[in-house]
Amino acid sequence: MIATLGRSARLKAASLLYSLGFFYNVLKETARFFSKSQVGYKVLILQILFTGYEALAINAIMAIAIGAAINVIGSSLLPQFGQSQLMYSILIIVITRELGPLLTAFVITARSGTAIATQLGTMVVNHEIEAYIAVGLNPISYLVVPRFIGVVVSMLVLTIYFNIFGLLGSFIVVQVIKPTPILEYLGALMSTLTVGDVASGLTKALVFGIVVSVVATYQGFSVNRASTEIPVAGIRAVGLSFILIIVADVLLTLVQYA
């Protein structure tokens, strides 16, 4: 019993060390990525197109809907407490600081996290990774780093995009409940918005982007030899990313408000 526990703990520790080593290598190769002529630029551009550009529509729809919902709820609740003026603060805090990065990370995890994990897993099974090594391409610098940078950049851009469309959704609802000139609405928003709000949201976006890309690439490479491991890698990438994103969100929120 004790021996089994000890063996299990040793395996977990080895696995943790391996994943930390993987993360360290990703950061090291990322620092080198732009310092030389790279055949990986094409992979980076394709990743930004898939993760960022192709997710614009779904992110915009979600942001408009969330912005509208917050406004509807706030407009019915806040006047009861005589706190209608808090509407803008709530919008900024909920969308910019919390839901913008969080929901964007969930969308990216569901779309790109699974795609990256299953794509890399398939490449492992088909010996494509070995073929890259054989021609002298480091799989971390050629396959992981462009995906890492692509996901992080897309995460930051999509979060800003989510914020803009979230506040736009709120504006649409405002027009129904209490028609307000756009300049007045934007003025009120801008006077409420602080640098801290933007920095907080973007910090979370950065951390979530790192989490999603590293977890997905790591899970993709963890596929060993069987094609049946590929969907498992995708599922693990999503599950683990969700957990780590929520944990990171709580920790970052604690740091900001503690």
Binding site: M123, E128, E130, A131
Partner: peptide, 18 residues
């Protein structure tokens, strides 16, 4: 890298990049 530049490998199952 220079070792890779002077070697080539043919895989049993081709292993082409899909």
């Amino acid at each position: 890298l220079s070792f890779r530049a002077t070697t080539g490998f043919v895989f049993q199952d081709a292993a082409l990049w899909a």
